[in-house]
Each structure stands twice: as structure tokens, then as C-alpha cells.
Design a protein around this nucleic acid. Structure first.
Lengths: 279, 279
DNA sequence: TGATCTTACGTTTAGCGTAACAATA
DNA sequence: TATTGTTACGCTAAACGTAAGATCA
């Protein structure tokens, strides 16, 4: 039977050109390689090398054998990886969300409902999340609607309502509610990592420009120092810093979403535990 | 690194269900399997079994590992086979011919022109031969024309001229030449293994019926005992037995073929040696 | 002379089988 | 009690490294 270690030596030889260099590369003695090459020829049952008195080189069949060896070695690597990843996936709940806020409530309750499981979460676009659900690449999805409830178990989870925040001196400050069309054309401060809200803003307010801030501190500075409008929601964590501003609800349907938890029917999440976590 | 022997033991365990039976199946001691399974878990770095005090079974990850093991083992088998077949192909000239007669002259001269090479020959349909040439599945082809000489090296090799053989009492016996349309409607004795001639007869003489004889002896008997016409050519080996019959040349273009040797340009056959063999 | 491959030789050790042990049905 | 899996122990054989030999540039 073929031995992957021996095949590795064959590949090393093909890459270095001499038995000595192959031995050095693999940190073994050179005679070992000599013997291994002889064993390989015996195992394959064919001649793999053309030999001179003190030189050896792959012949045509040997070159073919190297190809096969590389195939096998990489297949073996893949197998190792596959099994390890599979094992890991058995101990991991992968959550993909379209927005960050639902994760703030979902992740802690998942952790306590499934102790010992690793919870892996990430923000993704709605279409990427649908893909992941279909491929089983995530076990739990957070989407801003339940349009996929025909194929998956779907649970209404949280509502998030968008408001725009402007200084009291801003021309919009007097309004008690606004729509995206009212806001279209203004330029906004925006945080990065806000999931689908980013794309939605650009679609709903195509004439606006968005100054995306990656750093939270700089974002707060800009809110304080500029009169640029920004956004908040009912789920936002740090309303205190917006106290100096006026919050005006955005009334469009798209600005008021109900997040839904989705998973494949066979996975059956602990609904009670997860829903109990909503504030 | 993974060891294919160890993986084989894993597969054996998965197929037998107990370590003891796996050991028996592989003709090794049972403790060896115990140790191998432990080593495998160590190598994969994950738990593959659920163990009781005196029972062991594959867990979910173990089942996955078995799948991977089977993949790898069959890949290794394939690699062995591929290399061996490749090596063999280097020492084999595969000849595909549309008719048997050219092979009678070609094979002996190939053998002496390429001593040490195995000559593998077979009769194939013209379309199959074209396919083989394209895929490199044969190194040398014998075709009844040179219509593919644009893509391959093509050498005119032999001419074969068809004659019909009838008893002196037959109604055709007086003719000095015939065409397929003269012959169409008569029933004929035909040998099997005559390559493209078989199909050509059926196309050129659609109203005729052909009594195909597999056995040479029976064929000769029928020639002697019946008045059914049969065919011969200038290349036929055993004209003696047809001495009692009249041979009338078939004048159609399709009945007088020039065989061509074809090979891929990179192969370069020993033209002189092969052509010198023509009688 | 230095580099290379092969062969020889002595040693190590990895892996095997036997045997003993523990647990179950 | 018979069967199964694990552990312990001693041995063997396979594989390794060192050293020596042979060949070539």
C-alpha cells in the first residue's frame, strides 16, 4: 500500500532535484530517501527513475507518479481539514445577521441556552445570508423580514425603528416625523458595521452623501462638533450622547423593520430561551 | 500525517461494527486495532468514537472520517492504477484498424521496428478510431482514406480491392466486372471480424441479406456446400479454397480502398520500416 | 576535492501479538 | 460465561542514521 510519507519524499525530490537536498528539506538522512525511492518503485511496480552511477532523475513515469503523489497529499490534507471542520461545526452555532442590534440580544441568550457551544456571528448582506442558509453554512440567520418563511422556520424577534438625529438648530428639527424623501439630499454621518442599514440609506436617499466613520470616538466627535444629521434607533445603546440633538422618527415602512430569526427546519433552536432574551 | 493503513482499519471497523471483527477481517490482532483507532483520533485531533467500558462506536465526526478515509483509499488505488497504466502505455503501441488485412502486414513489421514494445491492435469503426486518435488512446490508426490528413501525419499504406466470388454456375459468373448495384438483392456469406467492410456491404447493398459466420471452418464449409456468393480481396490469405469459384472485381470506388496509416505529428513512426513491410 | 547516490552495518524504536484485565449481556 | 475493548509486556522487524564505498565533475 502507498505511504503518504514516502510520497512526500518523492515530491520533495521532484522539487529539489537531488536526493541530498530533499533529505535536507525534510530533515532526514539522505540514505533514507534512497531507500524510500527504491521502496516506491517496488510499490508502484514500475521504474520511476533513470539512474546513473551517481545521479538519479525522474523518468516519464516518475513525473506522472509525482503528479499523483501531489494529488493524494493534497487530498489527504483536505480530508484532515474536512474532518476537523466538521467536528468544529458540531460544536458551533453560526449566526449571520443583517444588522448588529439583534446580535446584542441574541448572542448572550444563545450562549446561556447552549452552554459549551461556540457562537460564531457575523454581519452579512441579506443575499449572502440567504445563500448561507441554503448551503447550511449558518445555522441561524437574522433577516429584516420573513420573506423566506416558506423554506425555513421563521420567528419574529425584534423591532427596530429608525430616527434621524439633528441639532436643535437644524432646519428639520421642528418636524415630528420625516420620510426618506424629506431626508434625500442631506448629507449624513454614518457608522460603519451597521449591516443592511448602510445599503438601505444609499437606496432610499440616492442624492445624499454618507460620511462613514469607522472609529466610534471620531464618530462621537463629529456628532458633537458638526451639524451633520445622523441616525439612531430604538435599540441604540448610547442614546446619552445624542441628548443634545433632536430625534425625529422616520416613518417609511423600510425604516421600521421586524427582525426574524430563521433556521432550517431540522435544526430546531431553543425558541423559548432565545425569545425570552428580548428586552 | 495520515496513514492509509490506519484508514483502512478505520473503514474495516465501520464495516464490521466491532474492533474484533475488523481485526479478523484484516488478519491482525484486535489490540492493534484499538491502538490504531487511538492513533487516528490523535492524528485527526478530534474525537471519532463514543466509548463505553467495553463498547466503542463511531460518533458523528467518526462517520465523517470514514467517508474521507474511503475517498482517500480509492484515490490511492486510482493513483497506483494510473501510474501503472501510464508506464505500460509508454511501452505499448496501440494500433486501431478499420479492417484486418492491413494488420497482417503492419503488426510484424512494427514488432521488428520497435522491439521490446508491446503492440496492441484492435478492429474499430472509423468513427471510434477518429475518437481514439483525438484522445491519444491509440498511437497508430489504419483508415480507408486520408480524409483526416489535415490533423494527422498520413501515409498511404496498402490497397485492397474487393471481388465477389460465385460458383461457375452462378448467374453472375459470366461477368468480368460488377458493381454494388448489380449485387444488391443477392444474399451473401460474410465472415465476422472484417472491420468496415461489414458496414459498407450493408450500406451499398441495402436489399441484400448477409449470413455472418463467426467460425472459419463453418464459413469454408458453406462456401463449398452452398452457391451463396461471398467476397474476397487481393489481400486475402486463403485464395486456394476459392479456386472452385469465379472471382469478379467490384469496380465501385468504395470497393477499392487505399488504407492510410495515421498518427499524431508528435509520435513520428518509423516510416521506412513500416512501409518496407508491404508485399 | 567536493558533491552525489548506493550499500553496509549497527542501533533504535515503532508496531505487533500474547496475555492479563475490566466490563457487559 | 462468552464477548468486547483496553492496558501491560516482551519481542521482532522495519526503518533510521552513521559510515564507507563508488562515481563523476
Amino acid at each position: 500500500m502507498l505511504d503518504l510519507n514516502e510520497l512526500e519524499q518523492l515530491v520533495a525530490f521532484s522539487e529539489t532535484g537531488t536526493l541530498s537536498m530533499a533529505a535536507e528539506k525534510l530533515h532526514i538522512s539522505q540514505p533514507t530517501i534512497t531507500r524510500t525511492m527504491q521502496r516506491l518503485e517496488e510499490c508502484f511496480g514500475v521504474s520511476l527513475f533513470s539512474r546513473g552511477k551517481n545521479k538519479i532523475a525522474l523518468n516519464e513515469t516518475g513525473t506522472k507518479a509525482v503528479e499523483e503523489a501531489k494529488r493524494l497529499l493534497s487530498a489527504a490534507e483536505d480530508s484532515l481539514k474536512n474532518v476537523r471542520e466538521f467536528d468544529k461545526s458540531l460544536r458551533t452555532i453560526t449566526v449571520s445577521s443583517c444588522a448588529p442590534a439583534p446580535l446584542w440580544f441574541l448572542l448572550p441568550s444563545l450562549s446561556s441556552a447552549y452552554p459549551g457551544m461556540t457562537i460564531a456571528s457575523s454581519l452579512k448582506s441579506v443575499s449572502d445570508i440567504m445563500e448561507e442558509l441554503a448551503q447550511g453554512a449558518c445555522q441561524l440567520a437574522v433577516l429584516p423580514d420573513d420573506s423566506a418563511s416558506d423554506r425555513y422556520v421563521s420567528i419574529p424577534f425584534l423591532e427596530e425603528n429608525l430616527s434621524v438625529c439633528v441639532p436643535a438648530s437644524h432646519e428639520l428639527a421642528g418636524k415630528t416625523s420625516v420620510t426618506f424623501s424629506d431626508l434625500n439630499g442631506f448629507n449624513f454621518l454614518l457608522r460603519s458595521e451597521i449591516g443592511f442599514w448602510d445599503e438601505m440609506c444609499r437606496i432610499q436617499m440616492p442624492s445624499s452623501k454618507f460620511l462613514v466613520q469607522t472609529d466610534e470616538f471620531e464618530f462621537q466627535e463629529l456628532i458633537r462638533e458638526s451639524s451633520l444629521p445622523c441616525f439612531t434607533t430604538n435599540l441604540a445603546k448610547d442614546d446619552a450622547l445624542l441628548a443634545s440633538r433632536v430625534q425625529i422618527p422616520v416613518t417609511d415602512q423600510q425604516a421600521n423593520v421586524t427582525y426574524h430569526l430563521l433556521c432550517r427546519p431540522e435544526h430546531k433552536i431553543n425558541t423559548a430561551a432565545v425569545l425570552g432574551s428580548r428586552r
